[in-house]
């Protein structure tokens, strides 16, 4: 575990905290894509199946359980909380699951390190995580006033991916057998998706104005 990886994980954890804070404190999930949240839940469930058969560290296990539990909690608020569910922009959140899930599944079946059930699911989760933010980005383009908590949530998610890339570069040079092009390519694609967002995020921050993404 290096500092970049830890900072990435903390950024990821903080993003979830910011989202839960927004939902619980403001009783609103306006501007948040349920599709992205459900895709993340699918990512975590398919990737962390190894909780049942392989142990890496207490840190890893706690983080995995935390990410699954918080993802389920967020979905529960957005779908079933009487107050929160009324603030969900259902008509705007129109991205189709199949457009993302199907290609990722096909790709995982074709491009993987080992053709086993758990390995294919793990690879699927890597591909799906790369594109799971798309419904959220599309929803933000359609939302006129993006609130600060939503903007910070997405910024923290982007920071998490960026820090993981630095972590991979560090590990490439410090660990002799650390080669995983499949994860790296997906990670770079995922981070690139945030480039546009970060451009407007820093611009809004510099001029102290509200974030607005051009349609």
């Amino acid at each position: 575990m290096n500092l970049f990886r830890l900072a990435g994980d903390m950024s990821h954890l903080l993003s979830v905290c910011v989202l839960l804070l927004k939902i619980r404190a403001t009783k609103s999930c306006r501007g948040i894509s349920l599709k992205t949240q459900e895709l993340y839940a699918l990512v975590f469930v398919t990737r962390y199946l190894d909780l049942f058969y392989s142990y890496i560290s207490l840190y890893n296990s706690i983080m995995k359980v935390t990410f699954i539990a918080t993802a389920v909690s967020i979905i529960r608020y957005m779908r079933f909380d009487k107050v929160v569910k009324q603030t969900y922009d259902k008509e705007q959140d129109t991205f189709r699951y199949a457009f993302l899930v199907a290609p990722c599944l096909v790709l995982a079946l074709v491009l993987n390190h080992r053709f086993t059930f758990t390995e294919v699911l793990w690879t699927f989760s890597i591909y799906l995580e790369a594109v799971a933010i798309l419904p959220q980005l599309v929803l933000m383009q359609r939302t006129q006033n993006i609130d600060n908590l939503t903007a910070n949530y997405v910024a923290l998610l982007g920071a998490y991916r960026g820090l993981y890339i630095v972590n991979w570069i560090y590990r490439y040079f410090t660990e002799p057998h650390y080669r995983q092009w499949l994860v790296w390519i997906s990670g770079v694609v995922q981070t690139a998706l945030y480039a546009d967002f970060f451009y407007f995020y820093t611009k809004a921050w510099k001029h102290n104005t509200r974030l607005q993404l051009p349609a």
Binding site: R5, D9, I56, N60, K64, E119, N167, E175, Y178
Partner: peptide, 10 residues
């Protein structure tokens, strides 16, 4: 590619 190396991240 060693499996262990790729599965220790979150």
């Amino acid at each position: 590619v060693s499996k262990g190396a790729t599965h220790d991240e979150l």
